[in-house]
């Protein structure tokens, strides 16, 4: 089923300190949404969290589930900026779960688990999931025609864990055009094998097909150029820290991540990849 624990650890467990050098201060490792030409990455990341929290209709009394919570940027935002009293995160990365739980954010608990197997007695009023769906379906499963069924099972599980009246703020990276030749094809192959093994970006039409019969699509916002700008900023910050990264994590680490981020920028520019945010209403 999609990325396994070992594959996710390849993607996220290099070292928390490594990622801290080139992501924003809250370690958002997903697309930011820019409101203006001169907005900082930090402000744009908060803007992204605000949009998804609004899509999920979060209130201070909502019990919020964050699926694929990463290093807890969204959970911390919910607790501090939206006064949410109870928020639960799930991540397949042990390093991320340990890091977030060690911060003792009031009302926040993170589970180190595979969401597709995770069992809970709790029911949630609002759900946020940011760029986790690309870990659900492997290329092999997609070739076997299983992608939509796997995504539909994800939406069924979220539905089963929520109370009637729940809302869901979802963000997914997307694949669109497929290159047939050139350096971009070689680079994309490198990224999917060396940086994000086991995963596959969904297509927009697969997501739209899979939400039924569990969630109603209210809004879809396309954010391709925002992700291009986000990855370009990550690349700029990575290069600013080149000396430190080469010293601490080695030349290969720096060069692999430079190639990965440069590939991302070109993939968004050339419509090979995109990103969408969805406002989903639970079908009760």
């Amino acid at each position: 089923m999609g990325s396994n624990k070992d594959e996710v650890q390849v993607s996220y467990d290099v070292s928390n300190e490594f990622f801290r050098l080139w992501l924003d201060e809250r370690m958002n490792y997903t697309c930011a949404v820019y409101e203006s030409e001169d907005q900082s990455l930090e402000a744009a990341q908060l803007n992204k969290l605000a949009i998804l929290s609004d899509f999920a209709k979060v209130t201070p009394d909502s019990h919020v589930l964050d699926i694929g919570c990463g290093w807890g940027a969204c959970l911390e935002y919910l607790a501090t900026s939206r006064s949410v009293k109870k928020a639960t995160g799930v991540t397949l990365s042990s390093a991320q779960a340990d890091e977030v739980n060690a911060r003792n954010i009031p009302g926040v608990k993170v589970h180190d688990a595979d969401f597709m197997k995770w069992e809970t007695e709790e029911k949630f009023d609002a759900v946020i999931s940011i760029c986790m769906m690309d870990h659900l379906c492997s290329p092999q499963e997609a070739r076997e025609g299983k992608a939509v069924d796997i995504y539909r099972e994800y939406f069924r599980r979220v539905h089963a864990m929520t109370n009637p009246g729940a809302w869901f703020g979802l963000q997914t990276i997307l694949r669109n055009r497929t290159p047939r030749r050139g350096q971009i094809l070689q680079d994309l192959y490198f990224v999917t094998h060396e940086i994000f093994p086991g995963g596959l970006n969904p297509r927009l039409e697969e997501i739209i097909a899979a939400v039924n019969p569990y969630w109603e699509v209210i809004t879809v916002k396309q954010r391709r150029t925002d992700y291009q700008r986000t990855t370009a900023e990550w690349l700029r910050r990575l290069r600013l820290n080149e000396t430190a990264i080469r010293q601490e994590w080695g030349d290969k680490c720096f060069e692999d991540y430079q190639r990965y981020l440069d590939t991302c920028v070109r993939c968004f520019d050339q419509h090979i990849s995109s990103l969408a945010q969805y406002e989903l209403r639970r079908i009760d």
């Binding site: 997609a142 070739r143 290159p179 047939r180 039409e205």
Partner: peptide, 22 residues
């Protein structure tokens, strides 16, 4: 993908991207 691309060029057609995974 390179094979697909070369066959598309030779035959002057394009398989839709959404069909490639199948």
């Amino acid at each position: 993908m390179q094979i697909v691309g070369e066959m598309e060029t030779e035959l002057d057609l394009q398989i839709p991207d959404e069909d490639l995974v199948e």
